[in-house]
């Protein structure tokens, strides 16, 4: 990807709202240990809010790259740091509305991974089909 900071933020919000929202809607009832919608959507919101901070950090890292690009691989492996942080905060009860130790790990893991993977795939190709200007404008949607 060739994101600008503005484009990163817009893409992040768009992807998590659209794909995150839809996938969470479908997955929640079939996740192990039956988490409720409130929990899964609070976690999704947490990923989004923290994601905005992460994007600022990624943008900073990108400045060290001559090409000012964001390699495809980075888009996938950042799932590790982001996922770990969200899980940590959820598990210790630092996320408002969720009690410590109340969220089953595998339910979190599956929901998070599926959303991340779908968003990553979509961002790296199909997104260009409906939005032809998106890739030429740093990932901006508006």
């Amino acid at each position: 990807m060739l994101p600008t900071l503005n484009g990163r933020l817009q893409t992040r919000i768009f992807m998590l709202v659209v794909f995150g929202g839809l996938i969470t809607l479908v997955l929640t009832p079939i996740l192990p240990d039956d988490p409720d919608y409130k929990t899964t959507y609070i976690i999704l919101a947490t990923v989004l809010v923290l994601g905005i901070i992460w994007e600022l950090i990624y943008h900073g890292i990108q400045q060290f790259r001559w090409e000012k690009d964001w390699p495809t691989m980075f888009g996938l492996i950042t799932a590790i740091n982001e996922g770990a942080l969200v899980w940590l905060l959820v598990d210790i009860g630092a996320v408002p509305g969720i009690d410590a130790d109340s969220v089953p790990f595998w339910a979190f893991f599956i929901d998070f991974s599926v959303i991340w993977f779908v968003v990553w795939i979509w961002t790296n190709g199909p997104m260009r089909v409906p939005f032809i200007r998106w890739r030429f404008f740093g990932g901006r949607i508006i």
Partner: peptide, 10 residues
């Protein structure tokens, strides 16, 4: 540099 085609440099 790659970002001239769509990213920061553009």
């Amino acid at each position: 540099p790659k970002s001239v085609w769509g990213g920061q440099l553009k």
